[in-house]
Amino acid sequence: MATNVGEVTGPRHGRAPAGPSKQPSRRSVRVGRLDLRLSPYLFVAPFFVLFAVFGAYPLIYTAILSTRKNTLTGGDAGFVGLENYRKILWDEHFWIVIFNTFGLFFVATVPQLIFALLIASWLNKKMRARTAIRMGVLIPNITSVAAVGIVFGLIFADRYGLANWLLQSVHLDPVEWRNHRWSSWTAIAFMVDWRWTGYNALIYLAAMQAIPKELYESASLDGASAARRFWRITVPLIQPTILFTVIISTIGGMQLFTEPLLFNYGRIQGGSLNEFQTVAMYIYETTFTNNYNVGRGAAISWLLFIIILIFALINFALVRRSVKGQTS
């Protein structure tokens, strides 16, 4: 772990506490050692205690539920082993929603992160009305999901929607947004990116602020172009943050729920042939509508959990290698 960016200038706010340094007494050495050994655990303990109750317990509970025949309305009807898993994996419906989830993830996330990086680098400049502009970029994230859903439902309405009105005004054919896979995915990706690009840009921006300016200045004196500075300095130096957003977006993308749901006016099937139903929607449909089948829903949840896990690890490895590649 050799993270020494701060070496050049040190963080701006970081200041060791002032005061005359005394020779430490034996007692204080002992306390110091205890402090060194215990503090890290104390620092992370609150997270794990709270998580154990409100995170781990539900997860284990869900695992147990997934092996039982259980509906919300009918109650528990006994242990069924892996029957729930078998039913799901042998049902074509599950594979359709898996395909949709991954497809939507790629269509939505790749452009989203690239735009976020660009926007962050634009925001990372001196300009007028800086606060207002940064605020403007984040604004999509502060609206209530309900209102956003209604607005985009109207924008992407097939016949009387704004998007088609614009298409027709430049003499293009209107699109039946919900009737094809590609068109529904495009519209949903637009909704997702609209809501989350600014969010990621802000996270990138925070990381970019920690890069010492001198690196850029001297690189620029050496004749490095803006693009080169971006790829050679910015991207490698915020690599941990990029990794972070990739993992977060993977997790978020795999759990995509609200946007496709609202895009279809609250109908959980995601299109008449499930063209844009995601795994999370399938979980909700199974658990809270149709059969109120909690056992089955829990099993899908666990499958999703495992898929996210594997996929996040793959992404992590890929991004880490490619971003590192930039630096050597």
Binding site: G153, L154, A157, D158, R159, Y160, G161, R178, Y265, G266, R267, S272
Partner: peptide
């Protein structure tokens, strides 16, 4: 039209 959709809502107004 799909019932309870925005298009359906608008169709009432547009005498569709």
């Amino acid at each position: 039209l799909a019932r309870w959709s925005a298009d359906w809502d608008a169709a009432f107004k547009n005498a569709a």
